[in-house]
Design a protein around this nucleic acid. Structure first.
Length: 893
RNA sequence: GCGGACGUGGCGGAAUCGGUAGACGCAACGGACUUAAAAUCCGUCGAUGUUACAGUCGUGCCGGUUCGACUCCGGCCGCCCGCACCA
């Protein structure tokens, strides 16, 4: 006789039953309201880790819950299957990236299936499969036609050992993350998606994402980095002092003439006019009259030009370049300037001029590479002005300050105020002054309203083999020509070698040699492949119909998108989520979809973390190498075999290097998938990190067993539970129905830890009731059965296998996975009597149990007659008696 | 520096339209059952204090509003995350 629940036999059994009855296949469009729940698809790295277990457990709870609530749920799974690790494996293990990837997919699919996820596996996709990436190529061509794709030169991080471009995040302290080589900046011609042109739309769209975490919305806003202000032109008045430029041998009038008839001999910086003027970008045009200097970047064309003949400046520029880009370096680097000797004319007051510095804190790739400094109202400008003895003129007067006495000390004043010392701006607020200053600048043709966006176009070219080929052909006469759509897909060749650095596609004997589709002349294929973030920017749309012979089936996409609930890690807060938002817009612009925002609801779950352990010699130890011993509240650890003491270290993200990982396979093998899922959803709020502990997992397993035991020996009742409940079972019955209501709301709001707590609570109540009612009569049996059914359904989204087993054990004959979600009986949600605490002056002294609908007069009488109250009042009358109906009573004396 | 989130027992965390702080779980402790262990069941579990009851204190700190504050307001402190010489 089995007295324990055995997940090893039950879990595969139910997985087969669900599969055999196609329970999780998404239904036809229109059959029911749709619900699209999606977890970020995994990279097939080899094996799933606990982070996956948490992510997919959460998504599965939502999917199963929504299915039970009557939605046509789309809950698919796929593989983000292109990427660098496959190529590294190819080099190290001499295995083809495709072979390695598909083997990993097979392993991980089996692992995910052992979790009992309610996934429609008929929609599985892998981005490395031509049946997927051919559509990506088709869209690339459509994007190209629509101007969403361009080809241009840009600076890239180049790894000279690996001979490839590195993404910014692959550069660590200036070195390639794999080769360790010093990364060089190179100018390369690359394919770009014109995401920066859609910056405003992406920014506006953030406001509509009311089911996204505020944190992610903020991060995206910052990433786009829109600054509103003005470009302001400062005319160059004077040459550098003769001495410094004596070697130039320039003609009379100086090297930099402001004379428009006599154009500057120097190249135009970014179309900002000749070097007869300097254009700055500012968000504070209101403070123009407080300007004390203009500063330009070391790489500014003007700096470079002057440096040609000025060795001191040339040395300074070299020095500027040495400053690292790490946070520390920036923090500690001294703000330094080099006085060029040039002066520029104030754009709003031709009688005034300010000096021009080259400064190490001005960035060439932001704004115009030049700024004006207003020391009174910007801290950095103030520090700079103090250092170089420049005047500090306040122009914004804080409220309540006197113009005659207000002065700037060590801190710049950056808040609101009224303009003064500022000619026609005097008396205006900061905001009004900004507008007025810009209007004036525009009328004087000295400046324009301008927005600066930090977001750069998305460079998608990668010098890699294992990625989606870019479907372009380079012809000497026709230029870059798209591959005709009827020749798609451009398939990656199988016969490639990884025996030398660089892109294997460049070394392939024949693949890149094709004839131009336009003129037929021998031409070359583009050998760069797409950034893998492209692959993941539209997979959610493909899931809507994976069989479509166009990139998307519009009917399916229009029906299922947007994703109702997207769940994944915070690490994708910007890149993947921003790229997907852009890509969805691009797809809509090219007719492949008709929405802007792909993810209506986003949830970012926390990480799975674990204690770390170190032996005396400093080596990391894995959890299964050590034994924990506790004495009271003290915990110590020792080595399992040697018995040597082990230091319990900090709690950190599970990682192989710190050996604090736990293998999901082992957990599922010993405790079962339900235990792993239950533990992942217990205790910690889903957005926070969850600490994996062996004790916690055992606790979850204990609950699995306890729940199963509790559901044994209950027969299907001879009749339905009536509204009349024996007093012995009434509190329990109410608790269970209230739990049903609570859990329903908690799952709806993804508050799984609260749902779990409510289930524990109701299960405890059920256990007590069963203990108190060992031989139930027919009426009691019916009520116990009703409550057992509800409880079993409540655990089913989290622990589906255990739930199916218990469902059968208590006499049901259909699959619980096909059973509609229960509704609480309204009568069970209300209480006739209510416990009301009695406070005296806000301190709780006693409580009263009264009928719910007691009149205020009756309640007053009860309170005043209450023994504790009488004692405290001691014959005096209370000043006030506050009664909040159904809530609390406060006696004020 | 800017922005976001947060601070509650030994631990994870409940309780936010202001109304019994510490639900639920973990750990710990005591008891029952057992030859014993495991498992299970019953109970205790913020601090202080009392034989016991009571009382007092208690949600990072200081102050305010209120009959009443973990919750609202003002000012600090601390921690985490993101961005960052961003003009």
């Amino acid at each position: 006789m089995n007295d324990r629940y055995n997940p090893r036999t039950q879990e595969p059994k139910w997985q087969q039953a669900w599969s055999a009855q196609n329970v999780f296949l998404t239904g036809e469009i229109g059959s029911k309201p749709k619900y699209y729940v999606l977890e970020m698809f995994p990279y097939p790295s080899g094996r799933i880790h606990m982070g996956h277990v948490r992510n997919y457990a959460m998504g599965d709870v939502v999917a199963r819950f929504k299915r039970a609530q009557g939605f046509n749920v789309l809950h698919p799974m796929g593989w983000d299957a292109f990427g660098l690790p496959a190529e590294n494996a190819a080099m190290q293990k001499k295995v083809h990236p495709g072979t390695w990837t598909y083997e990993n997919i097979a392993t991980m699919r089996t692992q995910l299936q052992s979790m009992g996820l309610s996934i429609d596996w008929s929609r599985e996709i892998a981005t490395c499969d031509p049946t997927y990436y051919q559509h990506q190529q088709a869209m690339f061509i459509d994007f190209h036609k629509t101007g969403l794709v361009t080809r241009k030169k840009s600076k890239v991080n180049w790894d000279p050992i690996d001979n490839t471009v590195l993404a910014n995040e692959q550069v660590i302290d200036g070195r390639g993350w794999r080769s360790g080589a010093l990364v060089e900046q190179r100018e390369l011609t690359q394919w770009f998606f014109t995401i920066s042109q859609h910056a405003n739309d992406l920014l506006d769209g953030i406001e509509t994402l009311d089911r996204w975490p505020e944190k992610v919305r903020t991060m995206q806003r910052n990433w786009i980095g829109k600054s509103v202000g003005a470009k302001v032109k400062w005319a160059i008045l004077s040459s550098p002092p003769a001495g410094e430029l004596s070697s130039v041998g320039e003609t009379e009038g100086g090297i930099l003439s402001k004379n428009k008839e006599n154009p500057s001999p120097y190249p135009l910086p970014q179309g900002e006019g000749s070097l007869s003027s300097i254009t700055v970008f500012t968000t504070r045009p209101d403070t123009l009259f407080g300007a004390a200097f203009v500063a330009i970047a070391a790489e500014h064309p003007l700096s470079l030009e002057i440096a040609k003949t000025n060795t001191q400046l040339a040395e300074f520029i070299v020095e500027c370049k040495k400053i690292g880009t790490t946070a520390e370096a920036i923090e500690t680097a001294e703000k330094k300037g080099f006085n060029t000797g040039l002066t520029v004319q104030h754009p709003l007051d031709e009688t005034r001029s300010v000096p021009v510095f080259v400064a190490n804190f001005v960035l060439m790739d932001y704004g115009t590479g030049a700024v004006f400094g207003c020391p009174a109202h910007d801290q950095r400008d103030l520090d700079f002005a103090r250092k170089y003895n420049l005047p500090v003129t306040p122009v914004v007067l804080p409220k309540g300050q006197d113009a005659a006495s207000f002065a700037i000390g060590a801190d710049a004043y950056t808040d609101e105020g009224t303009l003064y010392n500022s000619s026609f701006l005097n008396g205006l607020s900061v905001n009004d002054a900004k507008a007025a200053a810009i209007n004036k600048l525009e009328s004087l043709k000295a400046g324009t309203r301008h927005e600066t966006i930090r977001l750069r176009d998305w460079g998608v070219s990668r010098q890699r083999y294992w990625g989606c080929p870019i479907p372009m052909i380079h012809c000497k006469t026709c230029g870059t020509v798209p591959v005709p759509k009827d020749q798609l897909p451009v398939i990656l060749p199988q016969d490639v070698t990884f025996d030398r650095p660089g892109n294997p596609l460049d070394h392939h004997a024949t693949w890149m040699h094709v004839n131009c589709p336009q003129c037929g002349a021998p031409s070359l294929r583009e050998t760069d492949t797409m950034d893998t973030f492209v692959d993941s920017s539209w997979y959610f749309a493909r899931f809507c119909d994976v069989t479509a012979n166009t990139p998307t089936n519009r009917a399916a996409v229009d029906h299922f998108l947007p994703v109702d609930q997207y769940i994944g890690g915070i690490e994708h807060a910007v890149l993947h989520l921003l790229y997907s938002r852009f890509f969805t817009r691009a797809m809509s612009l090219t007719g492949h979809a008709n929405i802007k925002e792909p993810f209506a609801g986003l949830f970012t779950q926390g990480m799975v973390v674990h204690e770390t352990y170190r032996s005396a010699d400093g080596n990391w130890l894995s959890p299964d190498e050590i034994l924990i011993e506790s004495e009271g509240d003290k915990r110590t650890a020792k080595h399992r075999t040697t018995g040597e003491p082990v230091e319990i270290g900090s709690i950190e993200k599970m990682s192989k290097s710190k050996k604090n990982t736990v293998d999901p396979d082992e957990i599922i093998g010993s405790y079962g998938a339900d235990t792993a899922r239950w533990f992942m959803l217990s205790d910690s709020p889903p957005e926070r990190d969850v600490i994996w502990t062996e004790e916690g997992a055992q606790g979850a397993f204990r609950f699995v067993q306890r729940f199963w035991r509790l559901m044994q020996g209950l027969q299907a009742p001879s009749h339905a539970a009536s509204d009349e409940t024996p007093a012995t079972l009434l509190p329990m019955r109410k608790t269970v129905h209230k739990a049903l209501e609570r859990v329903t709301g908690d799952i709806e709001n993804l508050r799984f830890n609260r749902a779990v707590a409510a289930i524990y609570d109701a299960t405890n109540a059920f256990q007590s009731a069963r203990n108190a009612c060992p031989t139930p009569n027919a009426i009691e049996a019916a009520i116990l059965h009703e409550c057992a059914s509800i409880l079993t359904q409540l655990i089913s989204p989290m622990m589906p296998h255990l739930a199916e087993t218990c469902w059968v054990d208590i006499g049901h004959t259909t699959l619980l996975a096909l059973t509609p979600w229960a509704k609480p009986t309204p009568a069970m949600l209300v209480d006739d009597s209510v416990v009301m605490p009695i406070q005296v002056n806000g301190k709780r002294r006693d409580e009263l149990t009264v009928a719910k609908d007691i009149s205020e007069a009756d309640l007053r009488a009860l309170v005043l007659a209450n023994e504790t109250v009488v004692k405290i009042l001691n014959g005096t009358a209370p000043k006030k008696l506050i009664i909040v109906p159904g809530r609390i009573i406060n006696v004020v004396i």
